[in-house]
Design a protein around this nucleic acid. Sequence first.
DNA 1: ACTTTCGGGACGGCCCGTTCAT
DNA 2: ATGAACGGGCCGTCCCGAAAGT
Lengths: 205, 205, 205, 205
Amino acid sequence: LAQQERAVRTRKAILQAAARVFDQRGYAAATMSEILEQAQVTKGALYFHFPTKEALAGAIMAEQQRFAESRWPEKSPLQQAINLTQHVARLLQHDYVLRAAIRLVIEQGSFAVPNPAAYALWIQRLRAFLDEAREAGELRPGADVAAAAETVVGAFTGIQLMDQVLTDRHDLPAKIANLWRLVLPGLAAADRIPDLVLDEESQAA
Amino acid sequence: LAQQERAVRTRKAILQAAARVFDQRGYAAATMSEILEQAQVTKGALYFHFPTKEALAGAIMAEQQRFAESRWPEKSPLQQAINLTQHVARLLQHDYVLRAAIRLVIEQGSFAVPNPAAYALWIQRLRAFLDEAREAGELRPGADVAAAAETVVGAFTGIQLMDQVLTDRHDLPAKIANLWRLVLPGLAAADRIPDLVLDEESQAA
Amino acid sequence: LAQQERAVRTRKAILQAAARVFDQRGYAAATMSEILEQAQVTKGALYFHFPTKEALAGAIMAEQQRFAESRWPEKSPLQQAINLTQHVARLLQHDYVLRAAIRLVIEQGSFAVPNPAAYALWIQRLRAFLDEAREAGELRPGADVAAAAETVVGAFTGIQLMDQVLTDRHDLPAKIANLWRLVLPGLAAADRIPDLVLDEESQAA
Amino acid sequence: LAQQERAVRTRKAILQAAARVFDQRGYAAATMSEILEQAQVTKGALYFHFPTKEALAGAIMAEQQRFAESRWPEKSPLQQAINLTQHVARLLQHDYVLRAAIRLVIEQGSFAVPNPAAYALWIQRLRAFLDEAREAGELRPGADVAAAAETVVGAFTGIQLMDQVLTDRHDLPAKIANLWRLVLPGLAAADRIPDLVLDEESQAA
DNA sequence: ACTTTCGGGACGGCCCGTTCAT
DNA sequence: ATGAACGGGCCGTCCCGAAAGT
């Protein structure tokens, strides 16, 4: 049992080191050696926990689920949709596992059979909020909920990618706020827009 | 001089083969051997034209410029902005060089010093149209042109990426039309929106 | 631990194969592939023990130390100096590691920062004998011990090199005897010279 | 004819560039590209004058002959032998072609069939002086002229090599003077030694 | 159950000496 | 004398197993 505790620690160390390396280099350019080194673990240990490089990448992509589950009670559904994206935006600035997960999802096709599930997860999550919002009368009459959810998820992905090159993701929340500002008139009922908080951070400041 | 013509052909063959491979595999997983094979060219020929793998990637990224220059006369500036994105969307479905260029720009950071210029090129192009649109009174009063240009470029990048996994880019033009549909209410003067053609293709159909 | 015994064997096999190849081809023209082949070892094994070609060369040069330590009791110091050179001369005819070590030391400057230590080792060793000889009254009054040690080491290096081309080192001991014959009148007390054995081998014959 | 003049210049430029590169890197590590670059000549030009790398090395080794021919009138033969070595020693400090020639001769065996002629040239030259010296009564009675000539050439080779690592050949003439100082008592008639100048340079100072 | 040392071997990018059509 | 092409080979690294110990 003491054994197992160590094993858990080892596994975690590997996962985090791998996340760091995958995030920086991408799947193909990441090397097991660098991961070993950063995790302070030997080859044998790593291959006991993860039989192949691909398995390691898979484990990291799976971690993504954890992030999609956050929820904030009693807010308006539309605000919750916004909050979800801003929450993720902020996590992306520091959390290596999430960063790696997203990068790996994007690169998927190059090292494994592409799996839409990863995108679908976020699209559904967002769509659920938008459906609630429609029932709550927060949406503009003609809004296409399915299209909007998909568009926002795609847009988020790209903006975050671009911002990484442009500002190393320093102002990602602001960029996401811009996205919502541009999109809300086409999505939300006009009278609800003023109440929505697009960026909690700048709010606090 | 006849010689040089052959050289030009060789260079082109290499560039296209490289584009195909980079597009499919990404920079790191692409191998010079596969490029050689697809280009039907020998190692010596390749390394005469491009001293390193990185140089080859650079040359492909540079080709991007060519695509950004298209222009359609006499249309409204806003329509031109839309057309630009739709033009690129359609090219992306078939043109390997453009596909590779975009993929390489995204992956940049992993094999070279990240260079914002590539994004900046498209942002400026789009912004120029929006500025014209403002002067032509096509924009909604409060619209932030700079933010919109950046947002649209980022969004386009991500949507195209997502659509590659979801539908192998089969309905990319439709997805881009969705983007504009969602965004135009926040950007354009309300009375101009009905006149804009979001997707020429479906129009033709 | 049983494993480690195999590792020791592997390492030795590599070192000896490398010595053979370095001796024959020189550093630059030696290829890792030929070393692998001669050592009957795979690349993985080799690169586990020696991370680079340079490291392998370094390890061989280090082996040199071992050879400089031989000593023969109760003889006159001058005789010991002679014996040292003749011992090395004879080893050079058959011991690949020593041969390679010397060749690599000579070529040093072309693949690493030149390191005088290798020469210094032999110069000091010889000089120690000469110092003892002086105290034992074996030297000619005006003899410059420092210069002589250096000169003899340099001369030995060159003669061995030349003899390799001329006779494949078959008569190296005789050539070294010639060196001493020429040099002793300028170095040793005249009455001691007749007692010195310049070449044990021809003696035995 | 103007053509031919240019050809001569080109050939010379190649030879000197090659000398520089061979001297620094040795035969195997020298590359035709670096030679091309330093000679400011194109591939075609080089391969017109020298069909292979080996031919180029051969041409440089042949240049050596030129250096062995120097002669100084009216001096004692023994002094001329000394002067020859000192002359070469000083040339070695600056003349790339001579340096390269000697290095290539030493490395010969690795890229061509070893050819004793290169050593023989110098040995004979030196021996001729010593034979004259014997007739002039300058030698010690029992001196073995053949052995001495060979020994000195070998010694010179080694000392120059060692001094390159130790002092980048800065004090090579002094080292060669040391060699003669050590060797003369075994070679020359005792009463002639004081008149010999071992190192003109230090003499001048 | 977990970890380490040592090894296996395919392949990676690249450069090298050289030739050939012009 | 040139620019373009040739293709073999170089060093090193990569992902991974196997055998043994803890």
